[in-house]
Design a protein around this nucleic acid. Structure first.
Lengths: 204, 204
DNA sequence: TAGTTTACAGACAGCGATGTATGTTAAATG
DNA sequence: CATTTAACATACATCGCTGTCTGTAAACTA
């Protein structure tokens, strides 16, 4: 039965939404089109109508996900604030809170962390690297402003501080997402973050 | 042509060695038995003679790999040394150095970080978690001894310090291994480590 | 030394997943 | 209102991969 244009878009979104859950549960390479179709309540025919293949479906899922609020992070980090380190900590803590409360974000990040980028998905990897590089630059710039104001501990450089924060964030997230969520992200993660930022700070 | 007992063991090792490289290159679930056989210079028949299936091969690879030098780490961390934090830093730095120079270790860790533990490989995940838990306990105990001697900064608890170190190590390793090795692990990783430990230290 | 077993190679059957081709129905179009 | 076309469902051909089965030659054993 032929559907209206809006109906078609709805099923397309259903498929993407189902793909997200299935990819998360079984991993991208282990997930089958039949799995996605079943989860979406359609047949494989519908999927192949909207998407060329699994790689294409993955790319569309990747594009459709609302991660570009990274801009928000960047803008906030570039804001002129006297207490730069406080801003950095707040932004990072908000990021953790968001992740802790947003199941979709958790699934997407898990998929992105585990999936195999060799082959056709290398474009995604490059894009991720680009985003990360930009992220690092704004972070480094923020720490540089903190250093100018004498707020950064003498044993830290802007670059090393940015790396440390980034590595710890990555460690927290991958440990939590990929290793069974065996601690409370919002509380313990934030606590670790707070202590780290505190240690980055110059003694007063 | 029937081989001698030693020959058989040799091909078994060849297969495991080839599996390590193939699993690393293509991911466990994407790698086929034919791939492994080809890389090992044998046929699938040989593999199925030595191993029941891919999961079994993976488990044997996991068992055969010389990771249990974790014991060494634990023993060194439990040693009675006045400068506890220095010991911790040295052990962690040595771990990074070992990883940076040991390609096999890099492959194994990459495989372990990326592979999908849902299903038959859940046993491996549990074992990993067990190792990690033990690791964390010795780390925490070491930091506790540092705290007793007044070497740990006041804003850190043994547990939070251990978590911070562990998260950063994990972040460094996964970033380096899974994200294109875009920095020098031995130098930059060690530097970050040194600064972190320095920040954990109580001001003198 | 004859028979047995080991350590594979090679062939085979079967399944599961993919991609495509076809069928079907209702919306859109004129 | 007749025709076309969009949005699927269904059926089909195909292929890669798995696991097993058989074949075989050399090593071991009695």
């Amino acid at each position: 039965m032929r559907r209206t244009k809006a109906d078609a878009e709805a099923t397309r979104q259903q498929i993407i939404c189902a793909a997200e859950r299935v990819f998360y549960k079984k991993g991208v390479s282990n997930a089958t089109m039949e799995d996605v179709a079943h989860a979406a309540g359609v047949t494989r025919g519908a999927i192949y109508w909207h998407f060329a293949n699994k790689t294409d479906l993955f790319m569309e899922l990747y594009k459709s996900v609302p991660l570009p609020q990274e801009d928000m992070v960047a803008r906030e980090l570039e804001s002129e604030d006297a207490e730069v380190l406080t801003v950095i900590e707040r932004v990072a803590a908000e990021w953790l809170d968001t992740l802790a409360n947003d199941e979709q974000r958790q699934r997407i990040l898990s998929i992105l962390l585990r999936c195999d980028y060799t082959g056709e998905l290398s474009a995604v990897l490059e894009q991720q690297q680009g985003v990360d590089d930009g992220h690092m630059q704004t972070l480094e710039a923020a720490f540089a402003r903190a250093a100018e104001k004498g707020q950064l501990g003498t044993c830290w450089t802007p670059k090393s501080a940015a790396s440390a924060l980034r590595w710890m964030m990555k460690g927290i997230c991958s440990e939590w997402l990929l290793f069974g969520r065996r601690f409370d992200l919002a509380s313990e993660g934030r606590e670790g973050l707070r202590r780290l930022i505190g240690s980055l700070q110059a003694a007063k």
